[in-house]
Computed example of a mutant assay.
Amino acid sequence: MQLAPVISTVAETIQVAIAPVFLLAGIGGILNVMTGRLARIVDRARSLERLHPRSTGPEHERHVWELRRIDARISVINAAIIMVTLSALLICVVVALLFIASLSNLRIGTIVAVAFILSMLILMGGLIAFVIEVRLSLKAIHIRAELLERDGR
């Protein structure tokens, strides 16, 4: 009776698990971008919160509008970060299940496939939320017409 796994079985499992591991690296890069955006959003919110009490009239209204937009952006980017992180966790589950199945001869291919599909769907949701946040930020940074100097046109 063989108690230890055959080295070739472990090597084959590592080969199969490499693609999800590379996917994890890509997801890490995406999370880095998202958390960087969140940090910039928070910095902008803090600077506006300092200006808010001292502003009046149209300037105050612009600050309130932008703070509302920032609040929405924070919610959306936070949802994106949560979804992408959950996707990464599911990829880790896939890798673990690959090894468990290989080493114990379990036939859990369907479970592995479902976990991977769920991971991809959640990743798609996170990326969609990211695009929504980017669109919200673009709408917030349009330069007001009165600040654009026109040379007689």
Rank of each mutant, 00 (worst) to 15 (best):
S8N: 09
S55H: 05
T56E: 13
G36Q: 01
A4C: 04
E146D: 10
L106K: 13
A39G: 11
V64R: 12
I27V: 02
I143G: 06
M120I: 14
G29D: 12
I30Y: 03
I14M: 05
I27K: 00
A129G: 05
H60N: 08
S47N: 02
R50M: 10
S119V: 05
R54L: 13
D71W: 05
A101F: 12
R37A: 00
R153F: 15
L24M: 07
V93F: 15
I14L: 06
R73M: 13
I132G: 06
V95T: 03
G57D: 03
R40F: 04
P5S: 00
L24T: 03
A129M: 04
A4T: 03
R44W: 05
A79N: 05
F99L: 00
T9H: 02
V131Y: 13
A113G: 10
H142P: 15
A113S: 07
R135F: 14
V42P: 08
L31A: 02
M34V: 07
S102Q: 03
E12V: 09
L118Q: 08
G125D: 02
A101V: 12
I81K: 03
T85C: 14
E149V: 12
R144L: 12
P20Q: 05
P20H: 04
R144M: 10
I91N: 05
L147Y: 14
L138D: 09
I122Y: 02
L98N: 05
V10P: 00
P53S: 01
G125I: 06
V95R: 00
V6N: 15
V33M: 02
L103W: 01
R73S: 13
L3M: 06
I91T: 07
G126Q: 02
I77E: 00
T9G: 02
V76F: 12
N32I: 14
I111L: 05
S87Q: 06
R46L: 15
R107D: 15
S87G: 04
I77D: 00
I14C: 06
D151L: 14
V112Q: 07
L118D: 10
L90M: 06
P53W: 04
A115N: 15
P5N: 01
R69C: 07
I70Y: 02
K139E: 13
C92F: 11
T110R: 15
V21P: 09
F99M: 00
A79K: 02
M83D: 06
F22A: 14
F99I: 01
S137Q: 07
I132L: 12
A101P: 12
H60I: 13
T9S: 03
N105G: 09
V94F: 06
A145I: 14
R69D: 04
G36C: 00
M1R: 04
I82H: 09
G29N: 09
R144G: 11
R69Q: 08
I27H: 00
R135Q: 12
L147M: 15
V64P: 07
V76M: 10
E59W: 07
E146C: 11
N78P: 11
L136D: 01
A80L: 01
R107W: 15
G28F: 01
P53C: 01
A101K: 10
I108Y: 04
M124E: 11
L67W: 10
S47M: 06
